[in-house]
Simulated scan of single mutants.
Amino acid sequence: MAEIILHHYPLSLFAEKIRRILAYKKIAWRSVEQPMMAPKPELTPLTGGYRRIPVLQIGADVYCDTALIARRLEELRPAPACFPPGQAGLAGLIEDWADHRLTSQILPPVIVDMFPVLPPGILADRAAMSPALSKDAIFQAAPHALSQALLSLDRLDCQLRDRPFLLGNAFSIADAACFHPLWFMKHSARMFAAVEARPALAAWFARVEAFGPGDARPMSAAEALAVARASEPADVAGGEIATGEGLRPGDAVAIKADDYGPEESRGVIVRLSASEITVRRRDPEAGEIALHFPRAGYRIEKQ
């Protein structure tokens, strides 16, 4: 199988979600560091416009969004499982809550504390993705977001008082999704003190952090593009056609997130299921690419 390549940058909290899964599953991977801000000239040839981090690449197959990336890694390395039998639905619900609500509570107060050391222009870059990510909006939201984050930390601490991980004795996608916003809190000593003040939560955090950095080796973005050019899409077979939406294989579509980030990726549908869409696209730099998105959280428009 082709090498697993993760396009990310060190400060990305959503990339940390995937880095925890890779470390837990002991999957060797190649680390391609991408810019924190647009333009991303060596990422967009792979994605056709999508700029959010992380992105997973396996040869000429490119996977967007951590929800889909986590499930692809589970298919490739089923054990140890991140989607426990009988609890996969619950784990997914916690994942969605953490990726959206918990993260939205933690980001504003941490960014306010980090603002003096953030790269110049980063909030202007994020404001182009959503008005809610502008400097004024974040600073205004921070006090209320902090009050809500503390309530969420209480709930997590309560859940962990009689178990090592959120769903029992083993790490799962629920832990990965709740860990990454708390990991981001470590960039603010004031904020992370709230984790340390909750014994069960602090012990859980240390437990997940102890997985270590994982087996990662650096790769340049140019090398990753060369891998794509030298490969053919491999993950394109199968899939049940979702009905009732007027979408079929062969349709040209545009795909974009329904929450933030206006950038579109375009291609021709080659696989469509209730949970995933795969499109084929060609780029002068990357060659023929199969681009994979989850259905949840994305708008698909026929062209």
Rank of each mutant, 00 (worst) to 15 (best):
S188V: 03
I4W: 00
Q34V: 14
F179L: 11
M185V: 03
D283Y: 05
L160H: 04
R163N: 09
R155E: 13
N169K: 12
A237C: 12
K256P: 01
D175H: 10
S172K: 00
L153M: 15
A137F: 12
T44D: 01
F165T: 00
I277K: 08
E240D: 15
A197T: 08
L76T: 05
R281Q: 13
D162N: 14
A224S: 11
F83V: 04
F115H: 14
P80N: 04
L73V: 04
I111C: 03
S152W: 03
G261Y: 01
G86F: 04
A81S: 13
P35T: 04
P80Q: 02
S134H: 08
P294I: 02
A177W: 09
F14K: 03
Q87M: 14
S273N: 06
D259M: 10
A296Q: 15
V117L: 10
P213V: 04
R282Y: 13
A142R: 00
A81C: 15
T47V: 02
R126M: 12
A210S: 14
A141W: 08
R77A: 14
E245G: 13
G59R: 06
A170E: 15
R71W: 10
G59A: 06
A210E: 04
A203T: 10
G287P: 08
R101N: 13
G86Y: 07
M219N: 03
D235W: 09
Q57C: 00
W204K: 02
E263T: 09
R248G: 08
L201G: 07
Q148V: 12
L156N: 05
P181N: 06
Q57G: 01
A274D: 13
I138T: 11
G261I: 01
E209K: 15
A296T: 13
R280P: 01
G297V: 02
Q105R: 14
W29T: 00
A149G: 11
V268H: 07
A210Y: 06
G89D: 14
G297S: 05
G244M: 10
A170V: 08
D251G: 05
F165G: 00
G86C: 04
V253M: 11
M37V: 09
A79W: 09
M36L: 15
I255T: 02
T243C: 14
A194D: 15
R207L: 10
A202N: 11
I122D: 09
P131V: 09
S31R: 07
L247G: 05
A176P: 05
V55N: 01
E209L: 12
M114V: 06
R281D: 02
M129I: 06
R281K: 11
Y260L: 12
E33S: 14
L73F: 06
E276V: 11
F83M: 11
V270H: 00
G49Y: 06
E75H: 09
S275P: 09
R30I: 00
D162E: 15
T243Y: 14
P119T: 06
I69N: 01
V55C: 01
L291C: 00
F184A: 07
A221I: 00
D157H: 08
D96V: 13
A226P: 04
I4K: 00
S231H: 06
A88C: 08
P120T: 03
E285V: 13
I27G: 05
E33Q: 14
